[in-house]
């Protein structure tokens, strides 16, 4: 089963995102900041990461830069998911190795579309 790590300091966002990913047949893990996310990735590298920007301890941007340097860290598709919506932030995120970018607020259609963008299709699309 494909796996996804949801990294966000908001428990509400993690819950909403988890539901969406589970209906798309992902096995979902959660982390509340970049440091915990990095530890989770060291244990098992997920196929996809939904990544918040502003978090305590280690933010999403620093996490992504660290992730892309560790062995196997180039593999996960990383989708930033943040309220940082200006072009400069998007460009920085892409430069740091993000595969896609979701501007909050998001809904199921956006997540589904963005996952398809990076190669994860829903069951309906798979056929």
């Amino acid at each position: 089963m494909r796996t996804c790590l949801i990294v966000d300091d908001s428990a509400v966002i993690r819950k909403v995102a988890r539901r969406i990913f589970e209906t798309m047949n992902f096995q979902v893990g959660e982390a509340e900041d970049g440091e915990k996310a990095l530890a989770a990735c060291a244990e098992t590298m997920p196929d996809a990461i939904l990544l918040d920007w502003n978090m305590p301890t280690m933010d999403g941007y620093d996490f992504l830069r660290a992730l892309r340097k560790v062995p196997g860290g180039e593999k996960p598709k990383v989708l930033f998911c943040t309220t940082e919506n200006d072009v400069g932030a998007i460009a920085r995120a892409l430069h740091a190795g993000a595969d896609e970018y979701i501007m909050k607020p998001f809904d199921r259609d956006i997540v589904t579309a963005k996952l398809a963008q990076v190669g994860f299709h829903g069951e309906a699309d798979a056929a």
């Binding site: 072009v87 460009a91 892409l94 896609e100 979701i102 259609d109 963005k114």
Partner: peptide, 20 residues
């Protein structure tokens, strides 16, 4: 809108072809 540009449009195309 924010929602319209996030359905189907790759983010690279968003920053290449759109301005906020």
């Amino acid at each position: 809108s924010h929602f319209e540009v996030q359905r189907g449009l790759p983010v690279q195309s968003l920053i290449k072809h759109f301005e906020q």
